[in-house]
Computed example of a mutant assay.
Amino acid sequence: MMGKSFQQTGCVDINDIEFKIIKSPRSVIASAEVGVEARHCVLNITVQSTSYRSQYQNMLATIELIKKQIGNKS
């Protein structure tokens, strides 16, 4: 369960985002899938992050990418 501070990050409501685990370049080495794809259901924005070594870090990165995309659309 996510805490209150994580539920709403800036102008992005976490409940509007679907997360999916994807393969990353690190999957071959560590045999762990740590990449994350996120889709903002309301705005239909899809982003991916495979840069970090943990799913959690990649999930946070996708939220930031979505926030940037929303800022660009304004």
Rank of each mutant, 00 (worst) to 15 (best):
N44Q: 06
N44L: 02
I45H: 00
I45W: 00
I45Y: 00
I45L: 04
I45K: 00
T46C: 08
T46E: 12
T46W: 02
T46D: 06
V47H: 06
V47L: 09
V47N: 07
Q48D: 07
Q48Y: 07
Q48M: 07
S49P: 00
S49A: 11
T50Q: 04
T50D: 01
T50F: 01
T50P: 00
T50K: 01
T50E: 05
T50W: 01
S51N: 14
S51T: 15
S51C: 10
S51M: 12
S51K: 13
S51A: 14
Y52K: 10
Y52L: 13
Y52H: 11
Y52A: 07
R53V: 05
R53M: 05
R53S: 09
R53E: 04
R53W: 07
S54W: 00
S54Y: 02
S54I: 00
S54P: 00
Q55C: 11
Q55S: 14
Q55Y: 10
Y56W: 09
Y56G: 08
Q57F: 02
Q57E: 07
N58E: 01
N58P: 00
N58T: 00
M59T: 14
M59R: 12
M59F: 10
L60T: 07
L60D: 09
L60P: 02
L60N: 14
A61W: 00
A61I: 02
T62K: 05
I63P: 06
I63M: 08
I63Q: 02
E64S: 06
E64G: 04
L65A: 12
L65Y: 13
L65I: 06
I66D: 06
I66R: 07
I66N: 05
I66H: 09
I66G: 02
K67L: 07
K67V: 04
K67E: 09
K67M: 11
K67A: 07
K67P: 05
K67R: 10
K68S: 12
K68R: 14
K68H: 09
K68D: 10
K68F: 10
K68T: 11
K68E: 10
Q69T: 14
Q69M: 14
Q69H: 15
Q69A: 15
Q69L: 11
Q69N: 15
Q69C: 15
Q69R: 14
I70D: 04
I70T: 02
I70M: 09
I70E: 08
G71S: 10
G71M: 14
G71H: 11
G71R: 13
G71D: 10
N72M: 09
N72F: 12
N72R: 12
K73W: 09
K73C: 13
K73E: 14
K73S: 11
K73L: 15
